[in-house]
Design a protein around this nucleic acid. Structure first.
Length: 478
DNA sequence: CTATGGCACGGATT
DNA sequence: AATCCGTGCCATAG
């Protein structure tokens, strides 16, 4: 609805207050916006949230249907998270056609998007006994798209005719691999594993563990007061704990952009499993348009309460002023949110068009873009783009969630090329040699830069690599 | 003597 | 105005 209204609303900023608020809203992620709206909702009677779910296309209320009766577009209701808010009319337009300039600069270097099971298996392969491998494979292929194992362990044990604790062992090994907590049986377990690894590198606030173990259900429902009573601590403490969990742990291991091994224990931000934008492939067809869905953090419609507007006429004189400012605030907020969303829509339109290959095929195809160039194209100020990009994340069709800023990475394509070179080397290349290889492939970078990229990717220097290699060859005797 | 990492500078980006 | 990034120079480890 918001976006439909947008078309009829005059979007030009009218006041400086308007302008300022639009700017500040623009940098908020969906989650932060959620908080903002909630705060406003509870303090401003002129603002109203109509509960319920609405078809993103035609805006009619949806009752228990998974498909909108009018447009028959499937609605994703499978989890309890804030419903997807989009305007498909816009969204369908936000696509990138396959054609445009077909300038495939480098030949079939098809660096495939590695999938999660393989990625994990690689890490743990060496830790597994021969007979554990099929079990690991079984677990990894049964993961859901959040990286959790919904199949009961006992089932797997029976299937392979092994004792339950054997399966448990394998699960444990998997859980400590890169998207830490992957392969857990539920979010709670995943959190505990992450907590455990985190505790090895730094101290944790007290009670976190107990809070998760004993009060997970309460935490889920944000019933902090209840949990506080149960653990016998003040509610503020519980809030702190909840915050800590939000910022450092991730109940859905696979939703993070796994594959960045640099710092496996880096803090998760909540945004990394709650994207602001979801990009998916219409009908799963290779050549189909990409659909972009902009997440609106609340379920329902946000609007200025029409009754309040009417009631204003009969307002008691002493309240009149207050009510008027309330109304103004509410109108302003709604307007600004519309603008925010509209700005993001415009940004994504261009972004998806430019980075289609990257979105579908992976890191190697990232086209180096600058915020400045996009700003020029969209005819907005550079800072507008910066704000729109900062702190937000997008979910790709592959399921990975990445920060929007990755779309503007200047060197990612070279770094993936570098990874490929080193992965395929028969004998370790020195940085200087890599410079030559890259130059031959059309990337002109200095030797010093290669060294930096190597460090970024966590690849060791050539002489160390050769040492490791010879050790590995000698390993069978050890 | 060669391959790398550290520091710092300047230009680009935000 | 502040920050990030690529690069050159130099020290150091091997």
């Amino acid at each position: 609805m918001l976006l439909r209204q947008i078309q009829s609303v005059d979007l030009r900023p009218t006041t400086t207050a308007h302008l300022a608020q639009t700017m500040s809203l623009l940098e908020l992620s969906a989650l932060e916006l959620h908080e903002k709206i909630e705060a406003e909702l509870s303090s401003n009677p002129a603002l109203e949230l109509i509960e319920g779910r609405f078809c993103p296309t035609c805006q009619r209320p949806l009752i228990d249907t998974l498909h909108c009766p009018i447009c028959s577009r499937p609605i994703n209701l499978q989890n309890e998270e804030p419903i997807v808010f989009i305007s498909p009319r816009e969204a369908i337009n936000i696509y990138s056609s396959v054609d445009e300039e077909q300038e495939t600069s480098f030949e079939e270097t098809s660096v495939e998007c590695e999938d999660l099971p393989i990625y994990v298996l690689r890490q743990i392969a060496s830790e597994l006994e021969e007979d554990e491998r099929p079990i690991a494979a079984h677990i990894l292929t049964s993961l859901d798209k959040d990286g959790l194992l919904r199949t009961p362990l006992i089932e797997i044990a029976l299937y392979h005719h092994v004792p339950l604790n054997k399966v448990e062992n394998v699960q444990k090994i998997i859980q400590y691999a890169d998207p830490i907590g992957v392969g857990s049986s539920d979010p709670k377990q995943a959190l505990l594993v992450q907590l455990d690894t985190l505790s090895q590198t730094r101290s944790l606030p007290p009670l976190v563990k107990r809070a998760i173990e004993e009060g997970w259900d309460l935490l889920l429902r944000h019933q902090y007061a209840e949990l506080a009573k149960q653990l016998g601590v003040p509610a503020t403490k519980i809030k702190e704990i909840a915050n800590f969990i939000r910022q450092n742990l991730n109940p859905y291991p696979a939703r993070t952009y796994w594959g960045e091994v640099h710092q496996p224990t880096l803090p998760y931000r909540e945004a990394y499993y709650n994207p602001d934008v979801i990009i998916s492939l219409l009908n799963d067809d290779e050549n189909a348009p990409l659909v972009v869905e902009i997440i609106f953090p609340m379920e329902g419609k946000l609007r200025v309460n029409p009754l309040f507007r009417e009631g204003l006429r009969e307002a008691p004189p002493e309240k009149l002023e207050q009510w008027q400012t309330d109304l103004e605030r509410a109108t302003l907020l709604v307007k600004c949110i519309q603008q925010r969303n509209q700005a993001i829509v415009r940004l994504m339109q261009i972004l998806v068009k430019r980075q289609r290959d990257f979105i579908l095929k992976g890191d190697a195809y990232l086209y180096p873009l600058t915020r400045a160039s996009l700003a020029q194209e969209l005819e907005v100020h550079e800072s507008t783009i910066s704000r729109a990009v900062s702190g937000k994340t997008a979910q790709l069709p592959s399921g990975k969630i990445i920060p929007l800023s990755k779309f503007f990475d200047r060197s990612l394509h070279i770094r993936t090329e570098l990874q490929a070179i080193i992965a395929n080397e028969s004998q370790p290349f020195t940085d200087m040699e890599i410079v030559e290889i890259l130059k031959a492939r059309g990337f002109n970078v200095a030797r010093r830069t290669v060294a930096k990229y190597r460090a970024m990717e966590g690849i060791l220097p050539a002489h160390v690599r050769s040492k490791i290699k010879s050790q590995k060859l000698a390993a069978p005797f050890a």
